[in-house]
Amino acid sequence: MIGVLQFPGSCDERDAVLACERVDEARLVWHREAELGDLAAVVIPGGFSYGDYLRAGAIARFAPAMEAVREFAAAGRPVLGICNGFQVLCEAGLLPGALLPNAGLRFVCRQVEVEVERTDTAATAACQRGDRLSIPVKHLSGRWFAPPQALAELEESGRIVFRYAAGENPNGSVADVAGMANERGNVVGLMPHPEHAVDPLTGSADGLKLFESLVRSAAPAAV
């Protein structure tokens, strides 16, 4: 069973549940739930949690469910943050860097090509290195940023999991970063929406690999 967090203002939580249900059972986790129980993995979905009027993800990090996610992550269990979920994970300090307003200062919704750099994370275990995935982005604040020295360290330690393919960067992210992992690789966040790339009918099925990866990564913990 995969849990998908639901904050007031979440938008893509049902889409995330549908995507998870293609690989496992799934349920919504209300933002006030403080226990995650025996969930195999947790997805923090896209949207505008609590309206995001302050700064994307800045309020959601204080939700009781996020305290539970923090413990869940500390136990090495798989956590995937998508778009607003990535922003929340960065605000919560579970992933490095920050997501700034897009370089164009406009919301952008576009199908982009994303390259997989690591296959040893909870969200990419079912991918091949160099896989090129067609996945949509849709965000206003997706420009991932870290200061040069921090970026160099993250590059050095291989923390960058997804990069926009050449010419595909929609928001001005430094080093074309589309997604990051924590040091253990069990917490991954990305701006593109893999839950909107699980069916060729709606554009692409490339994102399904991320959900398959979550299930695969969860398996050992369940033993």
Binding site: C11, D15, L18, F107, C109, K138, H193, T202, G203
Partner: peptide, 27 residues
Amino acid sequence: FEQYDSVVLSHTVRRPEAVDAAVLHLH
């Protein structure tokens, strides 16, 4: 139209300018 989310809710089979009408599969 790139400034609009056209895919949330997982129904969108034809996005803007893919054909003369938007097509939604209501799963």
